[in-house]
Design a binder for these strands. Structure first.
Lengths: 130, 130
DNA sequence: AGTTGACCTGGAGCGCGCTCCAGGTCGTAC
DNA sequence: GTACGACCTGGAGCGCGCTCCAGGTCAACT
């Protein structure tokens, strides 16, 4: 089973342009082509894309993803170095989550303040119309 | 107490250029100036900067921060709309955290796989040298 | 008086990650 | 045979958030 670029885009959630772009910058091995020279993405291609989008979601820069992709092309021998990249990224993600949670607290605090302002305001109106 | 731009940069963690840039794009009210025309940031300026950097950390686009800043300049009357922005952002942050946590699981899974590869590899070496 | 260094302004430039475009080729449907 | 639509290529353009630069002013120090 293989997929046209439009199908691959739909399934990966990336745009057609982005798929071609990823190929150009060596994130993605050039997929097979059909008789007419059109890209035919395999299930494997899609699985790799799905992992790539995970990495992107974590905020990994494309430069680093290319590094990972390059290692992957070298096969098993590069497994150690690939693992290092993932472990590093895991750390970065954990940090980022902590950072966001701290921000969440600040937001909650501010929102609480606005709540109090609203209540004071409502009280004022009750008083005025009493 | 007021602070030179260098001090403000040090305390806010932003660069001097970024401070001037924020002022240019109306994120920051133009701070007071000393006799020589140099910026003199107040404690309030710094507090606002610190909140701004929180918002940036959550990934709020600058466009939206400007909106918030503009409302703030309009005083109490805009409190309701400012609250809406913060509540919305809180939602976005919560979503983002969830997304990152999902990615974390994928990373853990992949890293586990690499661990297994390493162990299998180590076993092979033991066998070979036995 | 001269040098240094922090600061000023307006504007250009940059790295990132796409996104869009022009101009062309195919295969299918009418 | 022609119109259409999906796809192709190479390359330009874009929005974001800074970052850097040239050329200048000013206060302090020697």
């Amino acid at each position: 089973m293989s997929y046209s670029i439009a199908e691959a885009a739909r399934r990966s959630g990336l745009s057609i342009d982005t798929l071609r772009y990823y190929e150009r910058i060596d994130l993605l091995e050039p997929p097979a082509r059909d008789a007419a020279g059109r890209r035919a993405y395999s299930e494997e291609d899609l699985a790799w894309l799905s992992f790539l989008t995970r990495l992107r979601t974590t905020g990994m820069p494309i430069r680093r993803m290319r590094e990972y992709a390059k290692l992957r092309r070298r096969g098993l021998a590069s497994a150690g170095r690939r693992k290092v990249i993932l472990v590093e990224q895991r750390g970065a993600v954990a940090e980022r989550i902590a950072e966001l949670q701290a921000c969440l607290e600040v937001l909650d605090y501010k929102i609480d303040n606005y709540d109090r302002i609203e209540q004071a305001d409502a009280a004022l109106h009750r008083e005025a119309s009493a």
